[in-house]
Simulated assay, not measured.
Amino acid sequence: MSDSLKAFYDDRKNSLASLEQDALLRKTGQDFVERSIPHKYTFNFDWMGRPIIQHAEDILAMQEIIFRMQPDLIVETGVAHGGSSVFYASMCRLMGKGHVVGIDIDIRPHNRLALEEHPMYEHITLIEGSSTDLSVVNQVTAMAKDKRVLVILDSNHTHDHVLQELRLYSPLTHKDDYLVVFDTIVENLPDALVNDRPWGKGDNPMTAVKQFLKENGRFEVDREMEAKLIISMAPHGYLRCLKD
């Protein structure tokens, strides 16, 4: 690494430390998320023609993780319109390695057809079924054998479901791999913003992550990622594996 690049990264480390401590800026980011939800802000963007339904900062964070990890397999629970699957597949295409397996309890025919006709589909396998169904887990486990695996959980957001996913899919990861849990933001939102869902404050992905971290010593929250993400749907959700 050149001296100038080292100086750049040293300066970034200092910037992240100050960002982590800037309570007003972090509250501003939280306020933005809360005000944007009634407008369905994240529904406004596509990745290569498919709705991605994520904040831009989370998309950029996932790009960093994927390039850093160089995973052989990316496991995503929750497919919806497939934009995230296409994004992860496009990263695989750019890197020249990797494959995406997308799991959803209901892959609607029009979404499946659109994905099957997409130029990134050669890097995607779709599995219809519950992510916690053992037959699905066993199928994914077989695909993950002897591979470096990135796990991304973004399906049913209740505490019990996410905790079960964490327990079932975390064994696929190894040291320095990532397990990313989306929509942990629910714990920080006013009840009025999620009162039409089966999850809410006290029953959501963040509560599941907190319990999982208490019972599983292999993971920690990536504090650097936490510091840099001012606007995110996944606070405390970027988990790094510490050991095999």
Results as ranks from 00 to 15, higher is better:
E215A: 11
S4P: 01
L213G: 06
I185D: 07
N111K: 00
S131Y: 05
V181H: 07
L153T: 03
C92Q: 12
F32G: 13
T42L: 11
T207C: 08
W199D: 13
V162R: 08
D154S: 09
E128H: 11
L163P: 03
Y178W: 01
E128D: 11
V136T: 14
D3N: 15
S84A: 12
A227S: 15
Q70M: 13
M48T: 07
E20R: 14
D3F: 12
H81M: 10
E57S: 13
M225A: 13
H81V: 05
L163G: 04
N44L: 14
F45W: 12
L60V: 15
E226M: 11
T207W: 05
T207Q: 04
G49I: 00
R223L: 10
M1C: 04
P171Y: 06
L60H: 05
P51N: 04
Q63L: 13
G78T: 11
F87N: 02
K13A: 10
G237C: 01
L126S: 06
T132S: 11
V181T: 00
S36L: 04
Q70Y: 10
G217E: 14
S135C: 12
D3E: 12
P171I: 11
M233F: 15
S18D: 13
K13R: 13
E128R: 01
E76H: 01
F219T: 04
Y9T: 10
V209Q: 07
I53D: 13
L24C: 12
I37Y: 10
M91Q: 05
A144C: 01
E57C: 09
W199R: 08
P38W: 13
G202K: 04
V180K: 02
D31H: 05
S131G: 07
P190D: 15
